[in-house]
Structures are given as C-alpha cells and as structure tokens.
Design a protein around this nucleic acid. Structure first.
Lengths: 218, 218
DNA sequence: ATAGAACCTGACCACACGGTCAAGAATCAT
DNA sequence: ATGATTCTTGACCGTGTGGTCAGGTTCTAT
C-alpha cells in the first residue's frame, strides 16, 4: 500500500487549500489555516508541499487542465446554435461545479496573469484562433450573423464565469444561491441569449425547431 | 490655504493605494509599497490614514459611488435598443476609464462581498428591480423578447467588466492593449451583441434582414 | 523480527508587516 | 514675532508569517 497515506493527505491539503485560496487569495491564506481546515498540523502541510508557492502552483496547474478540457471543440460543420448552446451550458455547469477553481483563475487574472500567461499564449490563444475561424466560416455560410469572434468569446466566458466569480452579487439579487433546477435554468437562459445574439434567424442548414426548447425564463 | 497640503498628499496616497490594491489585493499590498509609490515615508501614510483598513474602505466607498452613478436609469418609455446600447457603452467606457476601480470591486466580490453587501442590498438590488420592471414592460409591449431580466443584467455586467478585470486575457488574445479606437469598437460590438440578443425583430414571421441592425453608438 | 523508509510534529527562527511615538520642521493666525 | 497648529519622519515594537529541524512514530518489505 505504498503511497496511500501520501495520496490521501495530499488530497486533503489540496482540497482545503483550493477553497481558501479561492476565498481569500494567495496572500490572504495562511498555511496554518490550510492545516486547520485539513485537520493536520502545520508541519505536515510542509512535509507534502515544501513551500506555499509550490502548493499554489500545483492547484493552479490542475485548474488550467480542467479549463482546457472544458473548452469544447466545435467545428465548421457543426450546427452553430447547437454548438454554441452546448458550449455555454458546459461552461455554466463548470462554474457551478467548481466555483473555487473559477475564482482562483479569476484572481490570477486580476493579479496580472503572470503565472498563467504561458497557458494563455500556448493553449488559449490557438484554441481561440481555431474557434474564430469556425465562427467566421459560419458567417460566410450565412449561418451566423457577422459578429466579432473574439468579443463573442469574451462575452461568453464572462457571462458564464460570473455565476462563480460574482456569486455574492447573484445571491444579493436573486435572494439566495441557485439550486440545481435554477442552475439548469440559468444555463439555458445564458445559452439562449448567446444564440439569439449571433445565430442567423434564417439559418439554411439547421432545423429552427431545435432552438425552440431554449424557452423563456421565469 | 488651510488643508492644501492635506488634500494633495491624501490624493497622492489614494492614487497609489488604488493601483496597488487593484494589482495585488488588500493582503498583497503593504503600506510601505503604497508609501514608495506615493513618494512619501511610511509614517506619513499613517498620518493621513490611521489604518490600512481605513484607507481601503475610503477607496472602496468612492468606487461604489462611481459605480452607482454609472448605472443609468432607463425607463419604460425609452427605446429598448437605444437604452440598452447606451447603457452597455457607458459600462464599457467605465471599465476602460477606471480599470483599477473595476478590479477592486471584482476582488471584493471574490472575497465574499462582505464589505459591499450593504451596497448590494440597499442600492444595487432596488435598481435591479426597477430595471427588471422596465424590461418586463418592454416584453409585454412586444418590444423586447422574453428574456430573464436578471440574467440579462448579469450578462451585461459580466461582458462589460471583463475588459477591465480580465485584461491579461484580452491582451493575450488580441495581442496587446486596445487603443482608444479599439475601445470604441469593443463598446459597439458588445452593445450590438446585447441588443441583438433581446430586442425584438421588427416583424416576427417575416424574413429578417441579416444586416444593418448595428446598435446606434453614442 | 528487524532494518530502513516513510511519515509526523512540537519547538523554534528570521523576518516583514502594521502600527506607535516623540521630537523636530513647517505653516498659520493674530 | 510668537504661540499654536499641522505636518514630517526615523526609530522602535509586538505579532503573525513561512519555513526549518531534529527526534520520534508508524508502516513495509524481507
């Protein structure tokens, strides 16, 4: 059973640290607090992660991997409405499923993005260029309204992540945290806004009835 | 000329502190760093602002006032497309004009919103309810598609603030910081997305013209 | 059973931080 | 001019932090 204790304690620490880093940021989080939340003495945290920075970077790496996996890879021959809607819905789901991860990512951006700029350059940017090409192709085919692809993607990212990053704002307006049903409704609602914003009304290649399910919201 | 030195040094400190709080957060910013950036000795900072928290709160108060002023107050009898477009454009402008303020606000949200929850409850929420009523009225009049007003507003806020809060992401994708012309284009582009998303097309059922619906930018 | 590896942890350290203070310099009111 | 007020600042302090370490305990392979 080599490494079982190791794995378990590492997981415990990572879990506690992710939450605290998300809640209070890197500087606002103390090793002591992580240790307390994980139910371990402080020295034990240092046994598994020699420095606070190493611990933080470990968490950040994992988050970037998750982000990348959720990007989705819609192509030129997909149906625009369907592809965009499912992308938006996947992103909203991720926001609700891993709010801590989203907020750590957001903090990294606010801090200037120095730690993630390799990720942005090497992973995100190529992905964006590929997707932008798809969007432009759709527009050429008359299936998408002429919209700046970059700004559309920025808007989608922003609109979906806001439910994790700005949760207190949502809570104050909606009067509480959304339950599972509300989360699904939110996903549909945002997807609908995006689709309506840019998918051509008389899309020649797609069945318009498929969009009909994204109906009104309460 | 009583208080001239006072006002000048206070302004110097506030300016330096706003930038550092935006860049590194409350915990990540030291009084020493603020003093250095302001060109004053540390003790002098404490002379004008007894504690770090007081300094921070002073800055936060001002930011909330600015936010509130920029909210805009469109009403039931305004033109939906024009009202929404000009609101979006004003918000994008504010993001570019005061990126530090936007990021401090964003950090406050990420931190759980404890310091601003009175603002959210007493100022933001009533504003949202009024605006939601206007949006619903527009929908009843057939001038707006049926869209959840809350989610529409969340999307607008998120889409506009992302240009300040996630600047490194924009920089990585666009290949640099947007100049004045790009900023205007961004404002128009986002406004267009929003307007298209929710403003009713002239005649439902008839073939819609795919072009020429660009929002009127101020 | 036993050697060795992996794991645990209380005590400790250097240091940077927010904040204090008292003594001096500049400014102001009269 | 002069006393009062405001402003300036270097030296200092208590505290909390990230990180170290040595000595101990538990596990594992043979």
């Amino acid at each position: 059973m080599a490494g079982r204790i190791r794995e378990q304690n590492r997981a415990l620490i990572l879990q506690a640290a992710e939450r605290l880093f998300a809640d209070k940021g890197f500087e606002g989080t103390t090793i002591q607090a992580i240790a307390d939340l994980a139910g371990l003495p402080k020295s034990n945290v240092h046994y598994y992660f020699p420095t606070k920075e190493r611990l933080y970077r470990t968490i950040l790496e994992e988050i970037l991997q998750t982000w990348l996996a959720a990007f989705g890879r819609f192509g030129e021959h997909d149906d625009p409405a369907e592809a965009l809607a499912s992308y938006v819905i996947a992103k909203v789901r991720l926001s609700f499923a891993r709010p801590h991860a989203s907020r750590i990512f957001a903090r990294e951006m606010l801090n200037g993005g120095h730690l993630i700029s390799p990720f942005l350059e090497d992973e995100l940017r190529p992905w964006v260029e590929e997707r932008a090409a798809v969007l432009r192709a759709w527009t050429r085919q008359g299936r998408l309204r002429p919209v700046d692809p970059h700004h559309l993607l920025f808007t989608i990212w922003a609109a979906t992540q806001t439910y994790a990053d700005f949760a207190p704002q949502i809570r104050a307006i909606e009067g509480g945290d959304p339950d599972a049903a509300s989360q699904a409704a939110i996903a549909r609602s945002v997807a609908e806004i995006v689709v309506r914003a840019c998918v051509a009304q008389d899309d020649p290649g797609a069945s318009t009835s498929r969009r009909g399910q994204a109906a009104s919201a309460a």
